[in-house]
């Protein structure tokens, strides 16, 4: 294949990878930014969202679009409920202590994985895309649904941005993020804000799962990869900076697509991981975070 089509494919793939990263990282970025805790079970919330999407889609075999719409409502509700229970029963009781949260959410990760395995089984579960359209270029074909995912993730990002910057709830969240004590002093119910943020983060990643599961499959071990990747995106972007997360997702997604064109895949993956490490070595606060303290 000659250079231009190759580049086109790399850009398309990069865009999809970037959208995937941004979608999965969004919820983590929110939770991390406002609550300053690492939710290791974030990937499992994603997996749960995908499993629920699969379960709902096979309940209504009539048309995949029906299952898709059902999942868009059902998955965030179900995953949000799990997140709510987690927040009330565990995180609140340990006072959002960063280290204890890591251990507790690692425990939750195992728990959810095992439950998913026991309930849904170990097989990868394919989910039909709400529509199938193959875009035919002169050199190759490409999935139309993948491009829809790119557009949908842009819309979702805009929504979250709007809530954060233009609504009263967003203001409250930003104040809480800025300084927990001041927020309490101003009468902001920090506990309730935390609950809301944790649930919102889980619901967002569940929506991401519903969007992405047709181009992957639901599998009980699918959570680790998105967890690691969102983690990286959030840190590179800069703690608590939504804009940073989005730009980091774009950069990493496109970078991955392009590097793999020039090097053998495993070698490309080594280079990409090392690049991320060195970016942080040079700029530990990430691109859009404030310098440490």
């Amino acid at each position: 294949m000659s250079f231009f089509p190759h580049l086109l494919l790399a850009v398309l793939e990069g865009a999809v990878a970037a959208a995937t990263l941004a979608l999965t990282a969004l919820g983590l970025s929110l939770v991390f930014g406002v609550m300053r805790v690492v939710n290791v079970a974030h990937g499992e919330f994603y997996m749960l969202g995908a499993m629920v999407a699969w379960w709902l889609s096979q309940l209504v075999p009539a048309h995949p679009l029906l299952g898709f719409l059902l999942a868009l409502i059902g998955a965030p509700l179900a995953v949000g409920a799990v997140a709510f229970a987690t927040e009330r029963l565990v995180l609140r009781r340990i006072g959002y202590d960063p280290e204890a949260t890591i251990v507790a959410t690692i425990g939750l990760m195992f728990l959810i994985q095992q439950l998913a395995l026991s309930v849904f089984g170990a097989d990868a579960k394919p989910v039909n895309a709400p529509f199938t359209y193959r875009i035919v270029f002169p050199w190759f074909g490409y999935s139309g649904y993948k491009l829809f995912v790119v557009a949908a993730s842009a819309v979702l990002l805009l929504c979250v941005w709007w809530v954060m910057s233009r609504t009263r709830f967003g203001l409250i969240m930003r104040v809480t993020q800025f300084d927990r004590e001041t927020a309490t002093a101003f009468g902001i119910p920090v506990g309730r804000v935390y609950s809301a943020v944790f649930v919102a983060g889980a619901a967002i990643v569940a929506i991401a799962a519903v969007l992405l599961v047709p181009i992957q499959q639901a599998h009980y071990l699918m959570g680790l990869d998105p967890l690691l990747m969102s983690f990286i995106v959030v840190i590179i972007g800069g703690l608590g900076s939504l804009k940073g997360s989005v730009i980091a997702a774009l950069a990493i997604g496109l970078l991955g697509g392009i590097v793999s064109v020039f090097f053998s895949p495993t070698f490309a993956a080594i280079i990409a991981t090392l690049l991320v490490a060195f970016i942080l070595v040079i700029r530990p606060q990430g691109f859009f975070g404030a310098p440490a303290r």
Binding site: V90, A104, F110
Partner: peptide, 14 residues
């Protein structure tokens, strides 16, 4: 068995 590990960890932090 993963369930047991998960529960132990959560009980531990609680």
């Amino acid at each position: 068995n993963l369930l047991a590990v998960g529960v132990v960890l959560i009980l531990l932090v609680l």
